[in-house]
């Protein structure tokens, strides 16, 4: 469970980009974070994936107030979070396989053969079984995006965050990727997807978190805190559910 309480964030000496943000994310819930450009969506996600510390308020995550944790305690939390960055942030000099394998290698508790096995399985699942050794620059935007998503979920994170995950692809690819996220969420991962594309937000469903001028206006999910979009469905794709 994740809980923000009166969180505020300012960059440097500037005005607050986020003010008095309070919400709770139940385990396994699906949320769509919307708001106009500059509303603070990316900033909110940065607080969630522990890239930034809030300037005030508290952030409860996996049973700890992460704002009070020492710097050296944060990596273990980050390893439980998968992030799909707006610009993918893949390492261009590494193959798709190596990019996706990184989180497992960082975690360091699986032997290399098993890591390779899982990565191949997952890349096949997202339709890239034949591009395992391709470097990101040789992949299309949609393909890169799927590599980025695969990297975000390979470690079976407890929290999955996506910032404009369909920003660079055509509508049909956007639909497919959206279904991928919904599918992953059904496997039990708490998911937050930030987008300013309202049509996309509709098609994802889930609980709406709407940001405007750094304030959170919760919509949908029946008022109050955003809630789970639908009852968790048992894992479907046997091959993915296998690990």
């Amino acid at each position: 469970m994740i809980r923000f309480e009166n969180v505020g964030k300012r960059y440097g000496m500037g005005a607050e980009v986020l003010s008095d943000i309070s919400f709770t994310l139940e385990p396994g819930s699906l949320h769509v974070l919307t708001g106009p450009s500059g509303a603070g969506k990316s900033t909110l996600l940065r607080l969630l994936y522990l890239d930034q510390r809030p300037t005030r308020g508290s952030v409860q995550m996996f049973g700890h107030d992460v704002t009070r944790l020492a710097r050296r305690q944060l990596p273990a939390f980050r390893r439980r979070i998968g992030v799909v960055f707006q610009d993918f942030q893949l390492l261009d000099h590494m193959s798709a396989l190596d990019n996706v394998a990184l989180p497992l290698r960082i975690a360091g508790d699986l032997p290399e053969e098993r890591i390779q096995g899982f990565v191949r399985e997952l890349l096949s699942w997202v339709g890239l079984g034949d591009r395992l050794n391709a470097k990101p620059p040789t992949l299309s935007g949609g393909e890169q995006q799927r590599v980025a998503i695969a990297r975000a979920v390979i470690g079976k994170p407890d929290l999955l965050l996506a910032d404009e995950p369909t920003g660079n692809v055509d509508p049909s690819m956007a639909q497919r990727l959206t279904r991928l996220f919904v599918e992953l969420n059904r496997l039990g991962t708490t998911t937050v997807i930030a987008t300013h594309d309202l049509t996309l937000a509709e098609s994802i469903g889930g609980a709406r978190m709407q940001l405007a001028h750094g304030q959170l206006l919760a919509v949908g999910g029946g008022g109050g805190a955003p809630r789970v979009a639908g009852a968790p469905v048992p894992p479907q794709p046997a091959d993915f559910g296998g690990f």
């Binding site: 990596p75 273990a76 939390f77 980050r78 390893r79 992030v83 942030q89 390492l91 990184l102 960082i106």
Partner: peptide, 16 residues
């Protein structure tokens, strides 16, 4: 810098 930041955000320890 980019690779270092990505590693950091994926939860790599400093020593890694």
């Amino acid at each position: 810098q980019r690779a270092v930041r990505i590693m950091h955000l994926m939860g790599a320890e400093d020593r890694t």
